[in-house]
Design a protein around this nucleic acid. Structure first.
Lengths: 349, 349
DNA sequence: CTGAAAGCGCTAACAT
DNA sequence: ATGTTAGCGCTTTCAG
C-alpha cells in the first residue's frame, strides 16, 4: 500500500497492477474497443480498486480539448445572468464540459484579465457578456485567441463574433407604443448605465415610438440607485407638467420607481402608469402588478452555449435539441406582459 | 481534415525566437528573478510579440496546482446559491483560481458525477452543498479524494469535512418565539423538502419553540408548489380552528403563501400573520412587508471559499481579510427582520 | 546568470 | 489483441 500522499493513481500504475501495457489501459478507459474481454474486465477491476481517474491535464497536453468553457458576465448574483448561466451550464454538462464562471462587475480591466486567465487555462470556448460592446482592448484580445467566442446579451461591434441578444429596440418601442395607445401623453423614461448596449437600444426604441407619435421625450439617464430615482420622481411630480406614465429600462430602476411611487402614495396607474423592462419574480404579486417587457432569459443562455458547441464540434456533433445549425447572429423576440400598472387589467388592480 | 486550429505559441518557441534556453523563459514568466535585465527585456518583448501565454495544463502536469476549485450546488439560478457563488468566485479570483460551477438540481447521482468530473480535472478543492447530508455514496467519494472539501449551507454528517452553515434551528426557534410573543396561539408551519438538512433543522426549531410554549404544532410538510400552498391554506382556513399565524420555511413557500392570502383577501397580519425563512428582494416592498429570518448569504460563500483556500495553502498564505485561521465548523447567526406581516410596525402597514 | 535534460500522465503511431 | 515509444509544454535539478 503506497502512501504517496495527495496523489491520484496514474494510468501506468493501473497498467502495472493489471499486468498490461499502458495502451491497453488507455483503450479501456476510452471505451474498451479492440480489447480482449478478459483483459478488459481485469483492467476495469484494477481501475475500480485503485479508484483511478484519468488526468485531464495530461489529456489536454496531449492535444485533446480541455472540456472547459468560460462564461464571463458582469455578476453571478444578478438573476438575469445567473439564469443564463444555469442554462449554459446545462448545455455544457450535456457536452461533457465544465463551465467556468467569471464575474467582472462590468469592469473592462477585470474582463480582459478574465479572458487572459481563460486562455491560460486553454478553455475550449468562451461566452461573454461584454461590459462595453465597443471596447477596443476586448475586441483585440478576443480576435487573437483561437477558441470560438459567443457574445451574450450584448454584441461585440466591429467583429464577426456570433452573438445572442434580444431585440431591445423593438421591445422598448413596443412597450412605449403600448403606453401611447393607453392614451398617455407625457411618458417619462428612467435609466442609468447608458453605455451598455442594451440600454442604448432601449432608449432608441423609446425615442422612436415617442417621436413617431409626436410626443415629447422625457428622458432621465442619470439613475443609479434608489436615491436618484426618488430625486427624479419627486422632481417630475413637482414640475408644472408632470408625466402620466413612466417607462423604466431596467429591473432595479423599475423596482425603485415602484417603491418611490408607493411611498409617495401616488396611485398607479391612476395618477401615473408604470411599465418596466425585464420581468422579475414578484412583478405579478405586487399591487398593482407590474407590466413589463419580458426577455427569454433561459433561451439566451441556452442558445449561446449551443452556438458555442456547434462551432466547437461542428454542427452535427453537438448535443443540440435541434439538428440544424443556427444563424450566427441570433436576435430573440421579447414579449410584452400586460399586467395592471400600465392601465391594463384594471379589474384585478 | 483541415482544422484552422491556430495553436498558441509555446515556451520553447519563445526561447528559440529570443535566442535563449527554455529555462530562462520559464524564469521570466515566473517573476524574472536571477535573469539578466537585458535578457529579461528581450524575452519579454518576444512574449509580447507572440502573444504567448503559459499553458496551465502543462504546469499542472508538472505538479503544480490546477488553480481551479469546484462549486457544486443544487441550482445556479437560485438567488441564495448564486449569491454564494458570487462571493466564492471573488475569493477564488483573489487567490488566482477559477471557480467551476456545477448545478445538480439536488439529484444525488448528478452530484456524484459532478465530483467525479472535478476529480478528473484535478480541481484543487471543492465546495459543495450536498443534496442529502447523509448520503453514503457522496461521503465515500468525498473521503477518497485528496483535495480539500468544504460543505456549504448543509453539513456532511459522519465526516470531518469542514462546513459553513447557518444556525437554522436557532433561527426558526427565534422566529417562532417572536410569533408567540405577538400572542398568536395557532401557529402553522408550511414546508416541503423535509429531507434537506436546513429544513429539518428549521422544523426542529419550530417544534421546540411551539412545544416549549405548550402550543400545538400545526405542521404541513407536503408543500411543493403554488397549488399545494393554495390547497393547504384553504384547508386551514376552512377548519374549525384556523391558524392565526403562518411560519413558512423557505422562500418560495413564503411567496406563494403571500400570494394565496392576497388572492383570498385574507388580511395580513390582521387575520393571519406571516413570517418567512429567508429574506428576498421585495420582502420590504410588498404590502404588507414580509417579516423574515435573514441569513448572511454572502458570508456563507465567502467563508466557505476562504476555509478552502486556507486548507489549500496553509492559513498564512491564503488571501484572507483576516490573518487568523477559522474554526473548521462554522455556524453563522441568523437575524430576524421585523417588518409588518408578523404584526410588528403596524404603523407602516 | 544560463542551458541541457529529465520527466509529469496520457495518447497514438508503429510494432509485434 | 497488445506492447513500445515518442512526445504534448512546462518546471526543475544539475552543470557549466
Amino acid at each position: 500500500v503506497a502512501h504517496k500522499k495527495n496523489k491520484q493513481p496514474t494510468l501506468s500504475e493501473v497498467a502495472k497492477k493489471a499486468g498490461v501495457g499502458t495502451t491497453t489501459v488507455s483503450r479501456v478507459i476510452n471505451g474498451g474497443l479492440r480489447v480482449d474481454p478478459g483483459t478488459l474486465a481485469r483492467v476495469r477491476r484494477v481501475i475500480e480498486a485503485l479508484g483511478y481517474t484519468p488526468n485531464q491535464a495530461a489529456r489536454t497536453l496531449k492535444g485533446d480539448r480541455t472540456r472547459m468553457i468560460g462564461f464571463i458576465i458582469p455578476s453571478i448574483a444578478d438573476p438575469f445572468f445567473s439564469s443564463c448561466a444555469e442554462a449554459a451550464q446545462a448545455v455544457a454538462q450535456a457536452n461533457d464540459s465544465l463551465l467556468i464562471v467569471l464575474a467582472t462587475q462590468n469592469d473592462p480591466q477585470v474582463e480582459i484579465d478574465s479572458v487572459s486567465t481563460l486562455i491560460r487555462h486553454r478553455a475550449d470556448g468562451l461566452i461573454i457578456a461584454p461590459a462595453n460592446s465597443k471596447s477596443k482592448g476586448l475586441r483585440e484580445i478576443l480576435q487573437r485567441i483561437s477558441a470560438p467566442v459567443v457574445a451574450l446579451d450584448r454584441p461585440i461591434t466591429g467583429s464577426a463574433i456570433p452573438s445572442v441578444v434580444t431585440d431591445n429596440f423593438a421591445g422598448a418601442q413596443l412597450a412605449t407604443r403600448h403606453l401611447i395607445e393607453h392614451g398617455y401623453k407625457r411618458i417619462a423614461c428612467l435609466t442609468g448605465e447608458i453605455n451598455l448596449y442594451t440600454i442604448h437600444e432601449r432608449i432608441r426604441g423609446y425615442r422612436k415610438a415617442i417621436e413617431s407619435a409626436g410626443l415629447e421625450c422625457i428622458l432621465n439617464t442619470s439613475i443609479q440607485d434608489y436615491k436618484s430615482v426618488e430625486h427624479a420622481v419627486e422632481n417630475m411630480l413637482a414640475a408644472a407638467d408632470p408625466p402620466d406614465a413612466i417607462f423604466t429600462l431596467k429591473n432595479s430602476v423599475t423596482i425603485h420607481t415602484f417603491e418611490v411611487l408607493q411611498k409617495l402614495n401616488v396611485s398607479v396607474p391612476g395618477s401615473i402608469a408604470l411599465l418596466g423592462y425585464d420581468d422579475f419574480e414578484l412583478a405579478a404579486t405586487l399591487r398593482p402588478s407590474i407590466s413589463v417587457v419580458r426577455q427569454p432569459i433561459d433561451e439566451i443562455g441556452h442558445i449561446a452555449a449551443q452556438l458555442l458547441f456547434e462551432r466547437l464540434l461542428g454542427p452535427d456533433k453537438s448535443r443540440s435539441s435541434a439538428g440544424s445549425s443556427r444563424p450566427q447572429q441570433v436576435q430573440l423576440k421579447t414579449h410584452l406582459i400586460r399586467r395592471s400598472s400600465c392601465g391594463c387589467s384594471l379589474a384585478t388592480s
